[in-house]
Amino acid sequence: MSNFDHLWNRVGRLRKEMAVRGLDGVLLTDVERYGWENVFYLSGFRGSSAAVLITDDDAMLSTDSRYVSQAAEQTPFRVLVQSKQQTIFDMIEEMLRRHSVRRCGFEGETLSYGTYRRLSSFSVIWEDTDGMIPAIRRTKDDLEISTIVKACQIASDAYERALTDVSVGMTELEFSKCLEGHIVSLGGEGGWPDHRFIVASGVRSALPHGTASDKKLAKGEWVTVDFGAAYGGYMSDLTRNFSLGEVSDPEFLEIHSLLEKAHSAGAEAIAPGKTGRDVDFVARSVIDKAGYGDFFGHGLGHGLGVEIHESPRLSPRSAEILSPGDVVTVEPGVYIPERGGLRLEDDYLVTEDGHRRLSCDLPQDFRILSL
């Protein structure tokens, strides 16, 4: 298998969808990192400016002189270099004309309005493919799975190291940066490109998305840490909880035990053919029966891959059917206003006969750290 076979397999899947929709081509753009995910997924290119056009018999990538050598290394596509006088839109128009593209697909969710206005001036019938490529991205191949496993391992090891550095008086933001530093030292690209880590201590832990602040960590407070590593263009997403010394409110240790049970029940429900709401219901029922249902307001989980949030969703509203190759998070939580909250999260692969935990090396237990 060549280094690029996985990319050609993805292109093959896209071309089948193009034929079904009657498209002559599909255009993807990366304008200063806006829309990079689909460009990377199909071409392998990770620069900050590119246009990719895929037709029935050709696959080409246009970029500027900054990225010529990089593109040659990262993509098997034919590379077209913009001249000093050309813009990316000049090259797009030229590619469309050379291949007589009349009906061309694009992913509206990753295209800015300004870019769409420029493209609309071309003599092409544009069709929003409405999530076609994200749907293809759902099914992870072996290379993607191994990359996500590595991202999980890096994040897990970094968390263990960060726990040896934490102390009373350190701020949430300092802990977040400490954790990200360990991720980089272990070979990761850093944290999530477009999201900050959640580090929420004490009463702030009642905020499900309480990104790290300048609040200082205090003795007896519990800390919820939602974090992950970027590696090879893919993400991991984990949540763990610890305290500095004995917890001042023992009820939250009971809540953590409840979340372990809900997490386990939800994970065991993951299987091909189940809907997102099926899996969510199993975990949510555990929390509901314990009397904390009003304090679990978000969905149980989401897809994971090139982006930190992808399809499918695990939520009360999700009718998406799980299938082999999906990677999803399971992250039940309980958040009590003005008191605090906890969440417990791991990443799972949907397999032919059930599921496999990808983040299996990091214990789920609540850590009480010695002072």
Rank of each mutant, 00 (worst) to 15 (best):
N3Y: 11
W8F: 15
R10P: 11
R10M: 14
L14A: 14
R15F: 03
D24C: 12
E37R: 00
F40S: 14
Y41F: 05
S43E: 12
V52E: 13
D58Q: 11
A59T: 05
L61Y: 05
L61E: 07
A71H: 13
E73K: 03
T87E: 10
E94W: 01
R98S: 12
S100F: 08
V101R: 03
C104Y: 02
E109C: 10
Y116L: 15
R117N: 09
R117L: 15
D128L: 07
D128F: 08
D130E: 14
T147Q: 06
V149F: 01
I154S: 07
A158I: 01
Y159D: 07
V166D: 08
G169Y: 06
E172Y: 01
F175Y: 15
K177H: 14
C178D: 04
L179S: 01
H182W: 08
G191H: 08
W192K: 07
P193D: 07
A200L: 08
R204M: 04
A206F: 07
T211Y: 13
K215H: 11
K216I: 11
F227W: 03
Y234G: 08
S236G: 12
S236Q: 02
L244D: 10
E246P: 14
D249F: 11
E260N: 05
S264L: 10
G273S: 03
G276M: 06
R277Q: 10
R284K: 05
A290P: 01
G291R: 00
G293C: 11
G293N: 10
F295M: 10
L304P: 07
L314Y: 04
I321P: 05
L322C: 10
S323C: 06
V327Y: 06
V327C: 11
T329G: 15
R339M: 06
V350W: 00
G354K: 02
Q364G: 13
F366V: 04
I368G: 13
I368C: 07
